[in-house]
């Protein structure tokens, strides 16, 4: 085992994701603790050019292959398994994303590497990998350890500011040709389906009133819509509201929905699960209304009201209208 820390580079449509820089930011802190190098793993169809942006790493290892161009995690997994086997890093960081979630568990079993998921913080202490994890939808913090390592970590979005992983450095860039046969990949890419054009583009709104499962049923939506109208805002939502088909998928904020940064994000009856927070945490002003004082949304909100939305929302709509009048 080497003492190196490896980071999987994620890119979509030719752009590095914020998650990549977040992982590099963590890697920058952890690699010296481990006593090794920070190595970025860059896999894709035509990705050599992206290496320039990976200045935070000491080394970039890149693999180019036609079969790595599409969203087929199995192809990534086969290449990574080969690479990690050969290179044997102390710690490998993967993003909790559509790609990373389809890799970590498989690599853990295939390479017999312990893994920790939902990581918010990572460190190497006396040779052990120590992670602080956000479990139970953000309601418990678990400090877990892989004694000695090596190991894998699935890191939550927002675990580190992306800027910490942006750097001008000039890493050594090396091409690697792992000995795996991608013809054996069983999953086949057929195409990408873009979201249907929405009635409103929630990523462009200055004010969002966002509604969660706390609204209880579809018939209650007008209560929240009225507030949105009063504020000149659009209605967005958490995932369950979309899964229930009360609002179209274009209104969903979060991991599998949109990332929004409005001037005001007013969260109503939303608990603040990590997958939701990922899509709204950078809003200028976050105000939350939730009847449960323990709801994790109050950890990201600037202002909060522990209150029944059915009482406060109509009063707020009225107050906004009165002010306008």
């Amino acid at each position: 085992m080497s003492q190196d820390v490896f980071v999987l580079v994620e890119h979509l449509k030719g752009q590095l994701t914020d998650g990549t820089f977040e992982l590099l930011g963590i890697g920058r802190e952890v690699a010296p603790q481990a006593g090794g190098r920070l190595v970025a793993l860059l896999l894709g169809r035509d990705v050599r050019g992206l290496a320039e942006q990976l200045g935070a790493a000491d080394v970039v290892l890149y693999v180019e292959d036609e079969r790595l161009g599409d969203s087929v995690p199995e192809a990534y997994r086969r290449v990574l398994a080969g690479l990690l086997q050969e290179q044997s890093p102390k710690l490998t960081l993967l993003p909790t994303s559509s790609l990373g979630m389809d890799l970590a568990g498989a690599l853990s079993v295939e390479l017999n590497l312990p893994m920790i998921a939902f990581c918010k913080q990572l460190a190497v202490q006396d040779g052990s990998i120590v992670a602080t994890c956000e479990l139970y939808g953000g309601r418990a913090v678990v400090e877990a350890e892989i004694p000695e390592g090596p190991g894998l970590a699935l890191v939550l979005p927002g675990a580190c500011p992306a800027d910490k992983g942006r750097s001008e450095g000039a890493p050594a860039v090396e091409e690697v040709k792992p000995s795996v046969d991608l013809a054996e990949v069983r999953v086949r890419f057929k195409g990408l389906i873009e979201p249907p054009p929405g009635d409103v583009d929630i990523t462009r709104q200055e004010i969002l009133v966002s509604v969660g499962r706390g609204v209880q049923r579809e018939e209650n939506l007008p209560i929240v819509q009225e507030l949105a109208d009063a504020l000149g805002a659009a209605l967005s939502s958490s995932r369950p509201v979309v899964d229930q088909q009360w609002l179209p998928p274009t209104r969903q904020v979060g991991k599998s929905g949109m990332t929004v940064k409005p001037r005001l994000y007013l969260a109503v009856g939303i608990s603040g699960a990590p997958e939701h927070v990922e899509g709204m945490r950078d809003s200028d002003l976050i105000v939350a209304i939730n009847s449960d004082a323990r709801a994790p949304i109050f950890n990201v909100a600037h202002y909060g009201a522990v209150a029944d939305l059915f009482e406060v929302v109509p009063k707020l709509a009225e107050a906004v209208k009165n002010r306008g009048a």
Partner: peptide, 16 residues
């Protein structure tokens, strides 16, 4: 393989 050192509840509403 992994050892839990400690479970705690997050300090809720720290920022709000």
């Amino acid at each position: 393989h992994i050892r839990v050192r400690r479970i705690s509840k997050p300090q809720v509403g720290a920022g709000a």
